[in-house]
Design a protein around this nucleic acid. Structure first.
Length: 212
DNA sequence: TGCCAGGCCCTCTTTAGGGCCTT
């Protein structure tokens, strides 16, 4: 039996973003679009982007917010078909999202519909950014993209565009860990540990991590 | 009937409250 390596680099992950009909799968909300990129050794190597039909009409607020219309969803595959393909895309990779608890709730809910379980763990770019960039005016994805002058095509609130921007943010944070703390190729587990530290404790934690 | 997310994080805190972030 093959044993999974203990060290998983943080620069090889699937970065994902859901557009949804609302904020809570517990209240009946469903995913309407999934966008994701696979980053391997710090480079985007694959993209996944699909609309999905939740089986009911979405609100005008969500149509305006995302630019995804009910007409567009009428022509899309149902959620369960898309999620089967997405399960294949993420494989056993670790996962990253901006405010990951939100995307994790929807991923769990949609995968439950197809009785699929995934092995990867979640990392949260929002929680890391709050600790690495305390001087940013806020930690919304769009604000951080401008703050770090990250690549973007001007599209926001669409799944693939947001996933790509989140991936650039993630890579920028890895680069800053290397620049500021000489931490080369941080493991995914380090990024998770950062989010468990208080903002005040993070610099000392990283200096000690770097010097060990 | 009326209401309706949930986790993180700071502070006027921990027997709590409220802003942030995601759609």
């Amino acid at each position: 039996m093959s044993k999974k390596p203990a060290f998983t680099p943080a620069n090889t992950v699937v970065v994902l973003d859901f557009e949804t009909s609302g904020l809570s799968p517990n209240q009946g909300d469903r995913a309407i679009e999934i966008g994701a990129v696979l980053i391997e050794n710090g480079v985007i190597t694959q993209r996944f982007s699909e609309l999905m039909d939740p089986g009911f009409r979405i609100s005008s607020f969500i149509e305006d917010y995302t630019g995804i219309s009910n007409q567009m969803l009428k022509n899309a595959a149902p959620c369960h078909e898309v999620m089967v393909r997405f399960a294949d895309f993420i494989g056993e990779h670790h996962l990253v999202a901006h405010n990951a608890t939100f995307d994790q709730r929807f991923l769990d809910a949609e995968f439950a519909q197809i009785s699929h379980q995934y092995k990867g763990q979640f990392g949260c770019s929002l929680l890391v950014a709050r600790r690495l960039y305390p001087l940013a005016s806020n930690h919304q994805l769009g604000t951080l993209v401008r703050y770090k002058q990250l690549p973007n095509n001007g599209t926001f609130h669409r799944a693939l565009a947001d996933a790509e921007m989140t991936s650039h943010l993630w890579l920028a944070m890895l680069a800053d860990l290397q620049r500021d703390f000489a931490i080369t190729s941080p493991p995914f587990s380090l990024m998770q540990k950062i989010t468990k530290k208080t903002k005040a404790d993070v610099p000392k934690f990283l200096r000690e991590y770097s010097s060990r």
